[in-house]
Amino acid sequence: MAKPVGKTKDVGFQFGLQKTFPISEPKAWDFMFSDAGLKIWLGELVKSLELKKEYRTKDGINGLVRVFKPNSHIRMNWKKKEWENMSTVQVRVIGKGKNRTLISFHQEKLTDFNQRAEMKEYWNEKMDKITKEIKKASR
């Protein structure tokens, strides 16, 4: 029997999404961690993100910032309010040349194929919004 899409040996189900944008790495990082950028991909925060501190959004997403490396990535526990499980999300900003930067989302510790499908839809929607905002800003 074939292994289900996204099933891992150690961390349950996972999903990853990446896209390269025509923007410098510093501009991409600044956007992703600005209030406007955070509101798109994480939600409106009740208080600012801090390393080793819990966070919560007004929509009920909560977790703990585990790793925060400026101009590189953030890794955090991530849980929707209606979930019983806690997942892990990593967001990376990787320079690919003078004005090319890859933005990626990776989520693991999802319970099953259905939760993976839910998050695939969620992150694709977030990436579409990021794309629109970056296009708008570069006009």
Rank of each mutant, 00 (worst) to 15 (best):
K3G: 03
V5C: 07
T8E: 05
T8S: 09
K9S: 09
V11H: 13
G12D: 02
Q14S: 13
P22T: 08
I23C: 08
S24M: 07
S24T: 15
A28G: 13
W29K: 07
D30G: 07
D30N: 12
D30Q: 14
D30W: 06
F33R: 07
A36T: 07
I40F: 05
L42H: 00
G43M: 08
S48W: 09
E50P: 05
K52I: 12
R56A: 14
T57C: 06
D59G: 06
I61A: 07
I61P: 01
L64D: 03
L64I: 14
R66P: 12
M76R: 07
N77Q: 13
N77I: 09
N77G: 10
W78F: 13
K80H: 13
W83E: 06
E84Y: 09
T88A: 06
V91A: 01
V91M: 11
R92P: 02
I94P: 10
K96A: 12
K96W: 06
N99R: 12
R100M: 10
T101V: 07
S104P: 02
S104R: 04
D112Q: 08
D112A: 09
Q115I: 11
M119I: 10
W123F: 15
D128F: 13
K129S: 09
I130N: 00
I134R: 09
K136Q: 09
A137I: 09
